[in-house]
Amino acid sequence: MLILTFTLILLAGAYMAGLVGSLTGLGGGVVVIPLLTLVFHIDMRYAIGAALVSSIATSSGSASAYVKEGITNIRVGMFLEIATTIGAVCGALIAVYTPVNFVAILFGATLIFSAAMTLRKKNEHADMEGSPLAEKLKLNGSYPTKDGVIHYKLKNVGGGFSIMTLAGVLSGLLGIGSGALKVLAMDTAMRIPFRVSTTTSNFMVGVTAAASAVVYLQRGYIDPGIAMPVIIGVLAGALTGTRLLMRINPKKLRLIFSIAITIIALQMIYNGLQHKF
């Protein structure tokens, strides 16, 4: 295949990845890895490098829009980033000793979990009772809505912190943002309203990915010939996705994409078990 043809096909694929990633809220990375490994038979390590780059691109790209709305809780994000960045660096270190096929199986499992998470019932409720630790760390916050400012308080800071460490390890190992796990920690464990947890998770994805991306860049995982169409394609796709979200109800789309992503995930697990990577 010519480099020109490869770049153009990859550009179109990355555009779709960015579009699906932003519509489902899973981020661009989750679609980039199967696209590169299953369709182009590219080595898993180059795919992880490309996924990291697209995770940062989608996070920074949409964060600038989210920040304007004033929903992101910077303190919660910063505090939990201690967990995710340490996790991510550990993940990047473990990656050297982890067989590629195992990484593929783990990726498939994470993907199925993430797809299921996009369909679950969301925590719209703002809790009025918080824990003393949340008070001490100044994690409680508020966000504006049409009906006025809503105040919320947090619980189970330790539990959320532990899940975040795991999210960081997975992110460092697989190159994806593992936003689903981050939202789980904030929604389910810490009882943060989902509008806040989604945008705060998005803020954290970029920082977490950057922590391990530096290590992967030095290891040669990020190849310019792959990274270039991926960055441009994913960003353009994510921008289209954000615009579309304002006009359509993504509920039905989410269901369709979640089923498609689960099928892709099963294919990744199958190939991993067959040692095809």
Binding site: V53, I74, A213, V214
Partner: peptide
């Protein structure tokens, strides 16, 4: 290829810069 990688490096630096600004 190095120019492309400079783009990648800027991309990685962006969230780190966000931490510095915070």
């Amino acid at each position: 290829t190095e120019i492309i990688q400079l783009g990648v490096a800027i991309l990685i630096a962006t969230p780190i810069l966000r931490i510095v600004l915070s």
